[in-house]
C-alpha cells in the first residue's frame, strides 16, 4: 500500500471536497457584515449550482458557468435585499424561505430537464476546466505538495476571493463603511454613507459568491443529478463556519480546512485506518456521523463561549446583525 499516496490524497480531498464551504462562508460573511443574517445560503448555492451548470454546459464554457452561477446567486441576494432592506421584512423568515424556494427551483428545473431528456451531460471542456493545475515547484514538495498545490481553477479562485475579501473588509474604505453599517447603521448614515445602496450591493455580492460555490459542487459531482441536492447541507455548515471564523474571511480559509478535515475523515477515514493500522486503526471505529456533526458541535461551543466572554472589540459579530434599519425610527 502506498502510504504516502494515502496521505497525499487525504490532503487533496480536504481541499477538493470543501472549497464550496469557503465560497458559502465568505459570501455569508460579506452579507452578515452588512448587518443582514441570511439563512438562505443553502438555497442560494442551489440556484447558483443548477443555473451555472446548465448554462456552462450549453455554452460549453467554464467562464459562462461561473458568471451565470454568480448572477443567479446575486439575483437571490437582490430578492433578499429588496424584502429585508426596502420592505423591512423579517430576515429569518425571508432567509429560510429563500432556502425552500431555492431548493424548489433546483429540483423543479433539474427534474424537469431530466424528465424531458434535456439534462446536459458534463462537457469535455468543463471537465478540462475543472481538472487540476499544478503550481510549479510548490506542488513538487513531497507528501503535501500535490495535496495542497495541485487543484482545479475554482479552488484557487475561492482562496483568492477569500483573501481578497479579507483585504477588502479590513483594508479598504468600502470595507470600513460596510463594517460600520453592520455595527451601527445610524452612525454610518449620519456621516453620509448610503446605507441602503451599500447593503444592496454587498448582499448581492455575497450571494453571488455563494452561487459560485454551488456551481463548484455541481462540477465536483460531474453534473450527475439525483434525488439528493448537490449542496447537501453545505450551506448550513457555511452559516456555522461564519461564526467559527469570527466573521473573518481569512480565518474562514483555516476554518474550511478544519471543518473539511473532519468531513474528509468521514470519506477517507477508513483508508487511513487501513494504511496505518497501528496509529490510526481506531479511526475505523469512529462513526462517520460524528465527523458530520462535529462542525455543528464545535460551532455551538464557539457560540456559547463567545457569548459568555462577550468581550467588546474581540468578536467579529456585527452588532446590528439581524436588525432592519429604518432611519426615522423614533
Amino acid at each position: 500500500m502506498d502510504k504516502v499516496g494515502v496521505i497525499t490524497s487525504f490532503i487533496h480531498n480536504i481541499v477538493l471536497l470543501n472549497i464550496p464551504l469557503l465560497y458559502g462562508t465568505v459570501g455569508e460573511i460579506v452579507v452578515e457584515k452588512s448587518g443582514s443574517l441570511n439563512l438562505g445560503v443553502e438555497g442560494t448555492m442551489a440556484v447558483g449550482a443548477i443555473f451555472g451548470y446548465i448554462c456552462g454546459c450549453y455554452a460549453n464554457s467554464m467562464i459562462v458557468g461561473i458568471l451565470t452561477a454568480f448572477i443567479a446567486g446575486a439575483l437571490f441576494g437582490l430578492l433578499f435585499a429588496a424584502l429585508t432592506v426596502s420592505l423591512q421584512a423579517n430576515q429569518n423568515i425571508t432567509g429560510l424561505t429563500l432556502t425552500t424556494f431555492g431548493l424548489g427551483i433546483y429540483f423543479f428545473v433539474g427534474n424537469g430537464l431530466r424528465a424531458s431528456g434535456n439534462w446536459p451531460t458534463i462537457t469535455e471542456s468543463l471537465k478540462e476546466g475543472f481538472s487540476d493545475i499544478s503550481i510549479p515547484l510548490l506542488s513538487d514538495i513531497p507528501i503535501i505538495g500535490s495535496g495542497f498545490f495541485s487543484h482545479n481553477v475554482l479552488v484557487y479562485l475561492g482562496i483568492a476571493i477569500a483573501i481578497f475579501m479579507w483585504w477588502y473588509l479590513k483594508h479598504t474604505k468600502f470595507g470600513l463603511r460596510l463594517r460600520a453599517i453592520g455595527e451601527n447603521p445610524a452612525a454610518a448614515d449620519s456621516v453620509g454613507i448610503n446605507v441602503k445602496r451599500s447593503k444592496y450591493f454587498h448582499i448581492c455580492l455575497g450571494c453571488g459568491i455563494m452561487g459560485i460555490g454551488g456551481y463548484y459542487m455541481g462540477l465536483n459531482m460531474s453534473g450527475s443529478f439525483n434525488s439528493s441536492c448537490w449542496i447537501n447541507g453545505y450551506g448550513w455548515i457555511a452559516v456555522a463556519l461564519v461564526i467559527f471564523a469570527n466573521w473573518n474571511p481569512s480565518i474562514a480559509i483555516i476554518g474550511t480546512f478544519v471543518f473539511g478535515f473532519f468531513n474528509t475523515l468521514r470519506v477517507s477515514g477508513s483508508s487511513l485506518a487501513l494504511a496505518f493500522p497501528d496509529f490510526l486503526g481506531w479511526l475505523a471505529d469512529v462513526p462517520t456521523q460524528l465527523y458530520q456533526a462535529l462542525p455543528f458541535i464545535i460551532t455551538a461551543i464557539v457560540l456559547v463561549v463567545t457569548s459568555i466572554k462577550n468581550k467588546r472589540g474581540r468578536s467579529g459579530l456585527p452588532a446590528a446583525l439581524g436588525l432592519n434599519y429604518f432611519r426615522e425610527e423614533r
Partner: peptide, 12 residues
C-alpha cells in the same frame, strides 16, 4: 461605531 478606532470613525 464602538468597535472602531477614533481614526476609522472619522475615516469612514
Amino acid at each position: 461605531v464602538e468597535v472602531f478606532s477614533a481614526a476609522d470613525n472619522i475615516w469612514m
